[in-house]
Design a protein around this nucleic acid. Structure first.
Lengths: 228, 228
DNA sequence: GATGATTTGTACGTATGTATA
DNA sequence: ATATACATACGTACAAATCAT
């Protein structure tokens, strides 16, 4: 019962409702899956998870169902849950959809991104240049998530931001090592630059094209890494 | 050909897993929400649902969590679940995303829809003409779901089909009466025709444009109905 | 293919948090 | 504001299905 740190002990400012065990678990498991700690195909056994997190099976089951609905986990009735492992065709389809969603976000950003958000994005991009120079891979990876999240948010379309983020999350277990490919860090940053430049010009079509190119190259980098 | 025996009576051959109570409930509740039987804002109380469906609260809770992850339901910790009620801005965003997803599917269909599937879609479209003529609204509504599902499937991108279908489902409670607007049935069918014609020509850009137009007009019809 | 062990599915009791008078 | 009623969250017990032998 105390394996999950009790947030009630912290000064609860505002009206943030304390998450339930099920929600905390869903979050932690999602992070573990996205972070590659529980790779695709890993079995998620209720009793083992319950013991690991110091809770009963009930919240574990609810967390697993939530993750299954999110697509991070596959749940076969009476046969348990495993970390989702989409086949190559499905992965490719996910990359294509991701590219379209980012293209849409980039288009909307070019048309009407709030100046404040645009400046914040530019600033983040500048910080990332420094990370590239210093080869701070872990930092870049984290900043990259932020970069794309802000791009989605800049579209002004909350639903787009939500499903683009969800799709990105579902791809994360497979994109994990992609930035380790040689020169990939620099190229990723240059691709971001192209997107931002097009947005700054207000050129929606160019921004969309740059976003699609970025995703295509990301997928290629991953494929080459997976193949080699 | 023999009559197809009732699936429930068949010995469980192959692996058609019998759905659990939680899954059956999630499906039935989703249908009730999508069908407008439980309109947005309706409270979903565990005990009441358990009594209504003759099960305990456990599967009800799991179904609600699944629906919450799917976005059909909003779940506030310790405060229960209600049928999701997105505000106007979010709804508009959902329509825009839906339009892009359909445009993407239409583009892919124009490029490489399997002939067999294309013929089936054309046939369905012809059937729908008959429904329009006879003003068979309920039939058209059902066929319309099928029409769009086949369009997504024709893209050859299973992930696209999945999230497009999910988005359509989430919009359904708000699109419910839209086909009742005067002349809407004929126009809807004509818009479908434009999409199919472009696909038949292999003109992806035109198919995408037609799909976007269709969604835009759908949203407008709904807005006018909601306003009036 | 049968049998025991393991694991999932369901029911229910109780504690705790939320809403309301 | 305090108390009361009520709904949710979680643990536990049992039933049923799957799997390993």
């Amino acid at each position: 019962m105390d394996a999950i740190p009790d947030r009630a002990a912290l000064p609860r400012r505002g009206r943030l409702p304390r998450p339930t065990h099920a929600e905390a678990l869903a979050t932690r498991l999602a992070e573990a899956i996205v972070g590659g700690e529980r790779p695709p195909g890993t079995a998620l056994e209720e009793l083992a998870l319950a013991a690991e997190f110091g809770v009963s099976r009930t919240p574990v089951r609810e967390a697993l169902r939530q993750l299954a609905a999110m697509g991070l986990v596959e749940h076969r009735p009476r046969r348990g849950a495993v970390v989702a492992r989409p086949d190559a065709a499905r992965l490719h389809g996910m990359f294509l959809v991701m590219a379209e969603l980012e293209a849409m976000a980039a288009t909307l950003c070019a048309a009407a991104m709030p100046p404040r958000q645009r400046r914040a994005l530019d600033l983040l991009h500048a910080d990332m240049a420094e990370m590239v120079r210093a080869s701070r891979l872990a930092d870049y990876r984290a900043a990259n998530v932020e970069f794309h999240a802000r791009l989605y948010a800049g579209s002004g379309n909350a639903y787009l931001a939500e499903i683009a983020g969800a799709t990105r999350q579902r791809l994360a277990p497979f994109r994990g090592a992609q930035l380790e490919a040689p020169e990939r860090l620099q190229r990723s940053h240059a691709e971001h630059q192209e997107i931002l430049t097009a947005i700054a010009r207000g050129d929606g079509a160019a921004a969309a094209a740059a976003a699609r190119r970025h995703l295509r190259l990301t997928e290629q980098a991953w494929e080459q890494l997976a193949a080699g």
